[in-house]
Design a protein around this nucleic acid. Structure first.
Length: 470
RNA sequence: CGGGCUGUGGCGCAGUUUGGUUAGCGCGCUUGACUGGGGGUCAAGAGGUCGGAGGUUCGAAUCCUCUCAGCCCGACCA
C-alpha cells in the first residue's frame, strides 16, 4: 500500500528534499546561465503576495517607491572603500556594448547605495527635504560561486530601501523601525516564522555600514537563514556622495543614511521553515491560493456544487481555486495541492453531496472533517486563522527546543550541530567567533538576554546567537 | 590554479572495460478503454546530431587526440 514517496524525506537528505519541492510544487527552475533561476507562476504568485504585504508595510513606514537604473558607473562603486572591497569579487561588469568597448565600464547593480546616493545628493538641500525615504523593487546581480535557488543566486529580486536623515539618532531609529515594524511584523504575522532580531558582528556587517541589524530564522534542519537586514550607514555614503543640507540655523550639515532589504531568499525560508515530507505548507495569510475546492468525481452535480462553493468563498474574501479537472484522478490532484501547500482543501464527492456535506482537509495536520455545506464559508475562515496560528506555534516550538543556552565555545559548537546556541558575547568575542568559523558556525546576531536589539555590542549582558547558516 | 568525476529523448539512469544490424530502462508526455473518496490499471504511441570537432576502422555511444560544459575535493579569497 505504501507508495514511493513523492519527495525525498527531509531526514534522509534535506537539500535533496528542498530541490524536490522546488520541482514538484512548480516553484522554480534553474536558468540557462549558471546561478540564475526561473520563477514559475506558482512560485511567483507567492512572491507577489510577499511583495504586496511588504509594500503595504513599507509605505506605512513612510517610504515611497521609486526606480533607479540597473547599470551603475563603475566609478560610483569605487568611491566608498569598504563598499567596493566587499562587492568587487562578485560584480558583473559590462565592458562592451553597442559593438564597442565602453570608455567606462558599467556594473550591473549588486545593490544601489551608490546611484541612489548620487541622486539623494541632488535632491537634498534643506533640512526640510529630510527625511528622504525611498524604496525600490528591483533585481540585483552578485556573481556567486555556490548557488541554490532562492537562497543564493547570481540574480535575485528584492526590495531595497534607502533613506537619508538629518541626525544619527533619526537614521538609527528608522533602521530599527524597518527591522521591527516592517520586517519582523511581516515575517511573524504573515509568514508565520518566528525570527530573532539583533545586531551583526563587525565580521558580518554590510560593506560600508556602521551597524547592521538582521532578522534570523531557523529552518527545519536547524540551520539559520538571514531573512532581512537593515543597515545604519552613518555618514559613509553621505560624505562620499555629498548628501548635505542646510540646517535650521543655516549651517551646512552632512546627512545620515540607512539601507535595508529583503529578497526572494524569503521564499527559501518559507519553504524550509514550514515544509514537511509531503511538500510545502503555506501559511494562509500569505497563500496565493488559500483554499482549493476539489471535485472528486463528475457525478451527481458535484461539478456544479464545487463551482457554487468557489463563488461563495470568493465573495467571502477567500483566495480560492476550483479544481474540477475530473479527467485527472482525485489522488493525483489531492497530492498536487498538498505539494503546493494550499492550506485548506474542500473535497466534494457524490457521497458528500448526498449527505448535504463536504469534506474539509487541513494541509498542516492532514486532519479531515465533514461539514454541512451551508457552514463551509464560516468554517473555512475560522480554520485559516487556526492554521496560521498553529504554523507559527509549531515553528516557535522548534526554535525554542533547538536553541541551547551555553557558556563555552565548545558547547556552542556542539549545539550548533543541531540548532542554535546562545552564548554570552563576553565569553565568545571576535577570537571565539573566528574559532567557530573554522567549524562553519557563525554568529547570526547579537541580542540582549530578553531578545531585544542592543544599542552596541559592548552593552552588558549581550548574547551571541550562533549556528550553521545558509 | 591543481586533482578527480560526469556529459546518452523533458528528468533520472543503463550500455563504454572486450567496437558489430532497428541505442535500452524508469518517470514524465500523447491517444484509447476500463476506472475513480489519497500520485489508478491495461494497451497502443510520440520523442535521440549518444556535449562538440577531428582521427583510427569495413563499421564508433564504445578506441585515440583536441575541445566545451557541469559537479566534487584542494588551494586562493572573505
Amino acid at each position: 500500500m505504501a507508495k514511493a514517496p513523492v519527495l525525498t524525506p527531509q531526514a534522509e537528505d534535506f537539500p535533496r528534499w528542498y530541490q524536490d519541492v522546488l520541482a514538484k510544487a512548480e516553484l522554480a527552475d534553474n536558468g540557462p546561465v549558471r546561478g540564475t533561476m526561473v520563477i514559475r507562476p506558482y512560485g511567483y504568485s507567492l512572491w507577489e503576495r510577499m511583495q504586496a504585504e511588504m509594500d503595504a508595510r513599507i509605505k506605512e513606514a513612510g517610504a515611497e517607491n521609486a526606480y533607479f537604473p540597473l547599470f551603475i558607473p563603475e566609478s560610483y562603486l569605487t568611491r566608498e572603500a569598504e563598499h567596493v572591497e566587499g562587492f568587487s569579487p562578485e560584480l558583473a561588469v559590462v565592458t562592451h556594448a553597442g559593438g564597442k568597448e565602453l570608455e567606462e565600464p558599467v556594473v550591473v547593480r549588486p545593490t544601489s547605495e551608490t546611484v541612489i546616493g548620487e541622486f539623494m545628493a541632488k535632491w537634498v538641500n534643506s533640512h526640510r527635504d529630510l527625511p528622504l525615504l525611498l524604496n525600490q523593487w528591483a533585481n540585483v546581480v552578485r556573481w556567486e560561486l555556490r548557488t541554490r535557488i532562492f537562497l543564493r543566486t547570481s540574480e535575485f529580486l528584492w526590495q531595497e530601501g534607502h533613506t537619508a536623515h538629518a541626525s544619527e539618532a533619526d537614521a538609527s531609529a528608522y533602521a530599527h523601525r524597518i527591522l521591527l515594524d516592517v520586517y519582523r511584523d511581516f515575517m511573524v504575522n504573515v509568514l508565520a516564522m518566528p525570527v530573532l532580531v539583533g545586531r551583526k558582528t563587525r565580521q558580518e556587517r554590510f560593506a560600508g555600514a556602521t551597524n547592521t541589524l538582521a532578522c534570523e530564522a531557523m529552518m527545519g534542519d536547524g540551520k539559520a537563514l538571514q531573512m532581512g537586514t537593515s543597515h545604519e550607514l552613518g555618514q559613509n555614503f553621505a560624505k562620499v556622495f555629498d548628501i548635505s543640507f542646510q540646517d535650521s540655523a543655516g549651517a551646512q550639515q552632512t546627512a545620515w543614511t540607512t539601507s535595508w532589504g529583503t529578497s526572494t531568499r524569503m521564499m527559501g525560508g518559507l519553504i524550509m521553515c514550514h515544509g514537511d515530507d509531503r511538500g510545502l505548507r503555506i501559511p494562509p495569510r500569505l497563500a496565493s491560493t488559500q483554499v482549493v475546492v476539489l471535485a472528486i468525481r463528475d457525478e451527481g452535480g458535484v461539478v456544479d456544487a464545487v463551482r457554487r462553493l468557489g463563488d461563495e468563498l470568493r465573495s467571502a474574501g477567500v483566495r480560492v481555486k476550483v479544481d474540477d479537472r475530473t479527467d485527472t484522478s482525485f489522488g493525483r490532484r489531492a497530492t498536487d495541492w498538498e505539494l503546493k501547500g494550499v492550506p485548506v482543501r474542500v473535497e466534494v464527492g457524490p457521497r458528500d453531496l448526498a449527505a448535504g456535506e463536504v469534506t474539509i482537509v487541513r494541509r498542516d495536520t492532514g486532519e479531515k472533517r465533514q461539514s454541512p455545506i451551508a457552514e463551509v464559508a464560516h468554517r473555512v475562515e475560522m480554520l485559516l486563522q487556526v492554521i496560521q496560528d498553529d504554523l507559527l506555534a509549531e515553528a516557535t516550538r522548534r526554535l525554542e527546543e533547538r536553541t541551547a543556552e551555553v557558556a563555552t565555545i565548545d558547547e556552542a559548537r556542539e549545539a550548533a550541530a543541531t540548532g542554535f546556541a546562545r552564548i554570552p558575547w563576553a565569553n565568545l568575542g571576535e577570537e571565539g567567533e573566528a574559532a567557530l568559523a573554522e567549524h562553519a558556525v557563525t554568529v547570526r546576531c547579537l541580542q540582549r538576554a530578553d531578545g531585544t536589539v542592543p544599542r552596541s555590542e559592548d552593552e552588558d549582558g549581550v548574547v551571541a546567537v550562533v549556528s550553521r547558516a545558509y
